[in-house]
Amino acid sequence: MTAALGLAGCEFRIALRNRWVAIVIAMMALFALVLSAAGSAPTGELGADSLSVTVASLTSLAVYLVPLVALLMSFDAIAGEVERGTLPLLLTYPVSRGRVLLGKAAAHLATLAIALAVGYGLAAGAAFAVDADAAQGLPALWRLFWSSLLLGASFLGIGYALSAVARRPGAAAGLAIGLWLVLIVLYDLGLLAAVVADGGGAFTTEVFPWLLLANPADAFRLFNLASSEATAAAAGISGAANAIPAWQALVSIGLWPAAAFALALLAFRKVTP
């Protein structure tokens, strides 16, 4: 474990020096503040406190931003070591490839956690400033925080797998962006088109819920919106969210990080230095 901690420490230091930590925090803070400013107006009519409204907006933001940040941090993890020529020496040390990945993941996850805490903290602060009842939304905010970390962990694992498969940082970056586009943007558009074309048939009732659960980003959105009525009301999609129970979405976002890391380890083991 000292080995993984040592690796994590160095990786975090590198992230600090390369300004990654600063960039990720600034990005999260900026988006959170913009959302709070835009979302603080229409609270009263929905019967929700302002923090729940903020959480609903943050959920939509996190679905895009957390996977993107996770992929940006992880694409270089293995391909970068290969390109710098540092991998052969590292692998002659008595440390398993699993530990190497674990060390890197710990550092990246810590970076993400700091950024999320700053971003969500700022948004919560803004909500408290305009609404005395904002404390009602705190459980939803906490849920959003840890589920965002799980979402981030999933995409970190996927990013490591891509990095190991690509072997070159440039190719890994391309794959990461492509994957983000497919899983986060095109996937939902595709599902929407399919549901519309299906017109309430078997696809919509039988297959569609499973496809939503299969995508970690959709499962994350479902979980956060279905767990809190106030949030769902604020997001205006209570109907859709109720179709799939929250626990199913939770199982999906809980399993994804493990599956992604297994995938990453499998791909990393195939890398011959």
Binding site: G6, C10, R13, R84, L89, L90, P94
Partner: peptide
Amino acid sequence: PENAAFHPSLTGEEQMGLYLRLRG
């Protein structure tokens, strides 16, 4: 290794610190 390479952002001491930890 031939052409020993290390992460350019780390200092010599930090890099050695990591290798020491990896060997316990």
